[in-house]
Simulated scan of single mutants.
Amino acid sequence: MRPIRHDSSIVEFQRKRGGDCAAFFVPFLTSGMILLDAGCGPGTITAALAGLVAKAVGVDIEPNAIAAADRLAAAESLTNLSFVEADMTALPFEDEAFDAVFFHAVLYHQSQAVLTRALAEARRVLKPGGLIATRDADVGGNVLHPDIDGVRLALDLWQRWYEHDDPDALRFGRRQSSILRAHGFTPVWTGASYVNHSADATSRSEAVADARRSLLGFGPQLLRKGLATDDEIQTALAGWDAWGRDPDAVYFRCRCECVARKD
């Protein structure tokens, strides 16, 4: 399994918007449920969900992510929340241990083989009638203005960093329902929402700062692997700076959502 890359700007984004990321799943949850958040990262989403269910467990393969999640749980004194360092393709739980499993921004990074194993494990640990919810990206739905070449290049560099095996991965979001159905689940709801990086001057400034931090963080890795040139990285940085100077700039990032049931 390819390691999930916890870029610092992505982790910070998850901390800021944890509750928003799971809003679509909230109507399906009840107070008696036991929920698993697979690929939980710093645990912000798991913590938000813990307030709605009897027990929430987060798993992540990255030790630093689990350490951050444990600190969050301790700081918020959430007694029904726990985190486990584990591979989502080999979960350390008994069969039918959970009422719900949640995947956020995890599955579209994976190869077909890893995706199949992860969904098989989710199905194994779900109780009959249990729910699986997925929320993932789809570049075809992003809204950007002004359409600056440097910003488009920056988004492309981010995709190169993940080195997707499947060219369709960038439009994974719209295919979630069919993918879950193909792996033995019955979709019961689909939808989409947007992450707004341009609500006001402050959010635009934060978007530019996050983009710069991310580009400067993974840029050296792209250079070492021959996946980008220094000129491309500088063009991408300049593009975000130009976007941030436009008071009417918008960037709405599409996230597709699906809820399905284990029959």
Rank of each mutant, 00 (worst) to 15 (best):
H104P: 04
R204N: 12
A113I: 08
L144S: 00
L49T: 06
T44K: 12
C256E: 07
G58S: 01
S177W: 03
M1Y: 02
I4M: 11
S178R: 12
S82A: 13
L36M: 06
D136V: 01
D156A: 14
R181H: 10
D138N: 06
W158R: 09
C254K: 08
E121W: 04
I45V: 15
S77A: 15
A23G: 11
S177R: 03
P92Q: 11
L91W: 00
E257Y: 01
H197P: 04
A75D: 13
A90T: 05
R160L: 13
G19M: 06
D248G: 09
R174H: 00
V57C: 13
P63I: 10
D7N: 08
P167T: 07
V57Q: 01
F24L: 11
R123A: 13
R171I: 09
T190D: 03
D87P: 01
N64D: 14
R15N: 14
A48H: 14
H164N: 12
D231S: 14
T229S: 15
A75G: 04
A169G: 10
S9I: 00
E94A: 15
D138W: 01
V208R: 12
G19I: 07
D231G: 09
D210V: 11
G43T: 11
E12Q: 15
L155I: 08
V195S: 12
G219W: 03
D263R: 07
A113Y: 05
L126F: 04
G129W: 04
T30W: 11
G226F: 08
V250W: 03
T229I: 01
M1P: 09
D263P: 13
P128V: 08
E206P: 13
R212H: 14
E206T: 14
A48P: 07
E85D: 01
G226R: 08
L107V: 04
D60L: 00
S8Q: 11
L153Q: 08
D7Y: 11
D138S: 01
